[in-house]
Design a protein around this nucleic acid. Structure first.
Length: 433
RNA sequence: GGGGUCGUAGUUCAGCCCGGUUAGAACGCCGGCCUGUCACGUCGGAAGUCGUGGGUUCAAAUCCCAUCGGCCCCGCCA
């Protein structure tokens, strides 16, 4: 432990230890004054405690919520204190005074504030119980993804986010200047994941990806965090669906256990995905026609259909999630492996609680097939020569999937806007903080 | 990108339709009082270029036009 921390005791370590003199460091959550006593609710990363101080001790110190303090004193049990333990302050040092015009504080309800304000003051918002839990749970989801895959023999890769070509389609990339050449921010690690398969069979990457689509919606960002995996020697899309079922169930179980208390602050939903059905795109259309009389969908689902399908799945199978397979091939990227009928894709989406959180599928693994796919889509093959070469050394049959981390966090916690699960969102208008 | 809606103290809002005294409230902030609070209570105070620019009018937070921004829905996707 570094010397400057050696005197400090974490608040959580005071519980059940009897009277103990200590130095606490933390933030003020609340101040309550009476004539004889001032109560300061002090919070550190481990917990919260009521500090009891003589008014003379803090007279003129101008204590305010959110200020950073160091408090020296004695912890003791007291039935009058919240939590049964409190801290008698002998000395209080203000390490940094908070401003007197903060728009909210760490005990505010973020729901009562404008979303914009919450983003502009993100670190302060994260100091609230609920606002902090969102990002701790998001971190746990990403960490759970990595742990589940490492356990299954996947190797983590770190691909460049500066690329020369589009991987999915050419219209939605952010162009950047790379010295005297044109380059783009990567919209997906797709091609690099496939190279990873050629080397390691199973790889994953978690990183930001960039989409220059000027959409204004509650579930899109120009920069989002993608949980990506790719695996070799698969037989079909079922291998991928079963893998995702397993790892998500595993991650959700871990989060239910670890964030037991925090989850109560949300409309949380972390189901076992064993029961989630797998329906083909045509099955879905039939169900939507039967349940909602819809006959307006042809090549893709719309947001209303995604909500309706999850509701149907919940009713039929008890889980508000659906794996949708066999989308029409034309709506999928060039590297998509067709299903046996040639018209549909050997791919899938996972709809969770009404929103698409995953897209995955089997990829073309033979150079000639990729070449033909590029040609039939009218994509200029000259930029892909180097890419196609990577398929010349025994690229196995393979496939993979990508989960949008912020979307997953939203769906799991019942958040309404993806910006709630994005610390520093990038959208059409926002570039700061 | 299309449609809808909103922008007034630090914050959340009322006022706008039907233009007219010093633009209000709650919370927060500052100060006083209060034998231990725990959303403490209580008394007082400070705090607003009414998003921005233009127009109509004797007079604009209020009406008109433009512009910028927020939120919701759609398109598209993770």
């Amino acid at each position: 432990m570094p010397p400057h921390q050696s005197r400090r005791t974490m608040i959580a370590d005071l519980k059940g230890r009897g009277p103990k003199s200590a130095v606490l460091c933390g933030y003020i959550r609340r101040i309550r004054q009476t004539k004889s006593t001032t109560f300061v609710v002090l919070h550190d990363r481990s917990g919260t405690i009521q500090v009891v101080a003589d008014p003379a001790l803090i007279k003129g110190a101008g204590l305010r919520a959110e200020s950073a303090l160091e408090v020296e004193g004695l912890a003791r049990e007291d039935p009058r204190a919240p939590g049964g333990i409190e801290f008698d302050a002998a000395e209080i040092r203000v390490l940094n005074q908070a401003a007197d015009d903060l728009p909210f504080n760490s005990v505010s309800r973020l729901d009562d504030l404008s979303p914009e304000l919450v983003i502009n003051y993100r670190p302060l918002a994260m100091r609230t119980e609920r606002g902090g839990a969102i990002f701790q749970i998001e971190a746990a989801l990403a960490q759970g993804f990595r742990a589940a895959l490492i356990k299954r023999g996947f190797t983590e890769i770190f691909s460049s986010k500066i690329v020369a070509n589009a991987t999915e389609g050419g219209t939605n990339l952010f162009p950047i200047r790379y010295f005297d050449r044109a380059a783009y921010l990567a919209q997906s690690p797709q091609l690099y994941k496939e190279y990873g398969v050629a080397a390691f069979e199973r790889v994953f990457e978690t990183a930001h990806v960039y989409r220059a689509e000027p959409h204004a919606s509650s579930r899109h960002l120009c920069e989002y965090y993608s949980l990506d995996l790719e695996m070799g020697f698969i037989e079909g899309v079922r291998d991928l669906i079963e893998l995702e079922r397993e790892i998500l169930s595993e991650i959700f179980a871990e989060i239910r256990a670890r964030f037991d208390k925090a989850l109560a602050l949300f409309d949380a939903y972390l189901p076992e995905l064993d029961g989630a059905p797998t329906w083909t795109f045509d099955d879905c259309l039939a169900r939507l026609r039967a349940a909602h009389g819809r006959d307006d969908l042809t090549d893709d689902l719309d947001p209303a259909a995604e909500r309706q399908l999850c509701a149907i799945a919940e009713k039929e199978c008890g889980v508000a999630a659906v794996f949708v397979t066999a989308f029409p091939l034309a709506s999928r990227p060039f590297y998509t492996h067709p299903a046996a009928d040639g018209a549909h894709a050997e791919g899938f989406d996972l709809l969770l609680r009404g929103v698409e959180v995953t897209t995955g599928g089997k990829r073309l693994h033979r150079r000639a097939d990729l070449d033909a796919a590029l040609q039939s889509r009218g994509i200029n093959r000259s930029g892909f020569e180097n890419h196609l070469r990577m398929f010349d050394f025994g690229m196995p049959p393979h496939g993979g999937l990508a989960i949008g981390l912020e979307r997953l966090t939203c769906q799991v916690l019942g958040l309404k806007n993806i910006r709630e699960a994005t610390a520093y969102p990038r959208d059409l208008n926002r570039l700061q903080p």
